[in-house]
């Protein structure tokens, strides 16, 4: 083997090793979660509320709180995000204003989520005078918004101009074209973007720490501090109590499986649609 061939083999080996490392980390994390979290997977996890220090219980209130805040967050963010994305793709297009908004949207998307928490703390929590599920939901909405905007815009950009022209040629007004043609053509893509936004916010911990806070009670009233999975996991994982640690691992497994499922669903969804269309 010549020196050049040898170098080539070493190089290829290193690339394979790097890939194996990346996949290996994912598998290691999933393995740990199953190993430590699976033991706590029982009915009580979903039916009982979080216990006091050292006690036995479940995560029912945290699961319900997370579901409520994530849903509220998406209900706030989705319509605004889709319309903002529509403006960028259909009306603003290449104007200077649209470019600026695109830039700011990118900045908001990459802003550290803890800063969103601080912002909502000052705007909502200080204003209301107390921590609340609403504050948590708003913080999550601010994080979901830029994801939905950019997904919507990317999707609408795929709509061929000829389709819009065909609609306009039939005498449809612009918004009619947007609703009946553009949204229909790329609707699945937009829904995929929203799914990814849900996946993104359902694991967020930092923005909830000082907006929704946490709670050991079952509540469905977003005017009160609300229990949620991420903050509960954080608190329980860092505690010295074994039963709390176990619940933290079970919660971690639960949340990761949900997020991975959402991610995989968002990959399968567009494919399904294509198959149906053809």
């Amino acid at each position: 083997m010549t020196r050049r061939q040898f170098k080539n083999h070493v190089f290829k080996g290193l690339c394979v090793a790097a890939t194996a490392l990346g996949i290996g980390i994912l598998l290691l994390i999933l393995m740990t979660l199953f190993q430590k979290g699976f033991a706590g997977m029982n009915w009580a996890l979903f039916s009982e509320v979080t216990p006091g220090p050292g006690g036995e219980g479940g995560l029912a209130n945290a699961i319900v709180g997370s579901l409520i805040m994530t849903s509220l967050g998406i209900v706030i963010a989705a319509p605004i995000g889709v319309m903002a994305g529509t403006w960028l793709a259909e009306y603003g297009r290449n104007s200077k204003t649209a470019d600026l908004i695109r830039f700011l949207n990118g900045m908001l998307m990459s802003a550290p989520s803890i800063l969103i928490g601080l912002f909502v703390y000052e705007m909502v929590v200080v204003f209301m005078g107390h921590f609340s599920g609403w504050a948590g939901a708003i913080a999550l909405a601010v994080i979901a918004l830029p994801v939905i905007i950019s997904a919507t815009e990317e999707m609408l950009k795929l709509v061929p101009t000829s389709l819009r022209e065909a609609g306009a040629g039939l005498g449809a007004s612009r918004w009619r074209v947007t609703f009946s043609l553009s949204y229909r053509a790329v609707g699945t893509g937009i829904v995929t973007g929203i799914l990814l936004a849900i996946a993104r916010i359902s694991g967020e911990t930092a923005p909830l720490l000082f907006t929704a806070l946490n709670s050991s009670f079952m509540t469905i009233n977003p005017n009160e501090p609300m229990a949620n999975l991420p903050v509960t996991i954080y608190k329980f994982a860092m505690s010295p109590y074994e039963s709390w640690n176990q619940l933290a691992w079970s919660g971690a497994l639960l949340i990761t499986l949900a997020i991975l499922a959402l991610n995989i669903a968002s990959r399968i969804l567009p494919g399904l649609n294509k198959r149906r269309a053809s």
């Binding site: 994912l26 994390i29 979660l33 359902s202 694991g203 967020e204 911990t205 930092a206 991420p230 996991i233 954080y234 994982a237 933290a248 691992w249 971690a252 949340i255 990761t256 997020i259 991975l260």
Partner: peptide, 8 residues
């Protein structure tokens, strides 16, 4: 994978 899972 959420940040908190990496932390744990």
């Amino acid at each position: 994978v959420p940040s908190i899972i990496y932390g744990m």
